[in-house]
């Protein structure tokens, strides 16, 4: 589903002319299979958020290639990335990232609005989704009127309303108490099981990592340990085929 090969990334910091280059990721090869729950763990500054941001298209890698759902996405421009995100990804953020001036209903509706789905179809899908995450009673509430757990449910509903094949979650339980965290993890497992949605979860929480089929650990920008379902050779083969080459 997601394949990264030779991904390196570095940031430039400091004023213009006195910039300093800080390498964050070094030559990362990884793949995430369809229907997998993959947890990316590591200490702060290990580069796990950067890895997720590269998958999301919020930043571009300094080197390497990324392929998602059979499409090379590394060189997509901003507009194409936006369309790609809308079509393939759902996002769950640590701080929920709900729009404060919109109700829970409107927040969940937003991806459908962006996609140009009609009003009646939108209503049907949003109401169903709000019920699925057990937040329908709070549909007309603004984010400020909801608890952290409720906001995260709205965020999950928004990420799933377009029924994306992949959900990228950045510290999804970071702002939740243990009870809400448990509830969220149950929901993730259920969605993965029932709908076959692929989850890539950034976390430093072992509890969260425990629901994953596989855990990828990052250490100082390098993969510390990985138990790939496919070999590195098969990743190379995927890229060779995509580039029109042949495997010898």
């Amino acid at each position: 589903m997601i394949t990264m090969m030779g991904i390196s990334h570095q940031f430039k910091i400091g004023k213009k002319g006195k910039e300093r280059i800080v390498p964050v990721l070094h030559d990362i090869d990884l793949s995430v299979e369809k229907g997998e729950i993959v947890a990316i763990v590591g200490r702060s500054g290990s580069g796990k958020s950067t890895l997720l941001n590269l998958m999301s298209g919020y930043i571009r890698p300094t080197a390497g290639e990324i392929k998602v759902a059979g499409r090379m996405v590394t060189k997509l421009d901003e507009g194409a990335w936006a369309d790609f995100r809308l079509a393939h990804y759902g996002f769950i953020f640590q701080n929920f990232q709900l729009i404060s001036s919109m109700t829970a209903y409107e927040n969940v509706e937003l991806p459908l609005v962006l996609k140009g789905v009609g009003q009646s179809e939108r209503r049907k899908r949003v109401e169903k989704m709000l019920e699925n995450v057990d937040i329908a009673a709070f549909a007309s509430h603004y984010p400020s009127e909801l608890s952290g757990g409720q906001q995260q449910r709205v965020s999950v509903a928004r990420s799933l309303v377009l029924e994306p094949p992949i959900v990228l979650a950045d510290e999804p339980s970071g702002s939740l108490d243990s009870e809400n965290e448990k509830s969220l993890l149950t929901m993730i497992k259920q969605l993965n099981h029932e709908l076959g949605i692929t989850f890539v979860i950034i976390t430093h929480d072992d509890q969260v990592a425990s629901v994953a089929h596989r855990t990828i650990r990052l250490q100082d920008g390098r993969l510390a340990r990985q138990a790939p379902l496919v070999s590195v050779e098969s990743i190379k083969e995927t890229f060779d085929l995509a580039k029109g080459g042949h495997h010898s």
Binding site: S56, Y58, E78, G79, A82, D83, F84, R85, L86, A87, Y89, F91, F93, Q97, L98, I99, S100, S101, L110, P111, L114, K115, R158, S159
Partner: peptide, 15 residues
Amino acid sequence: QDIGIMKAIGAHPSV
């Protein structure tokens, strides 16, 4: 921030 959230979930810049 709202614009950022919209872009993050897939709003096209032209929109």
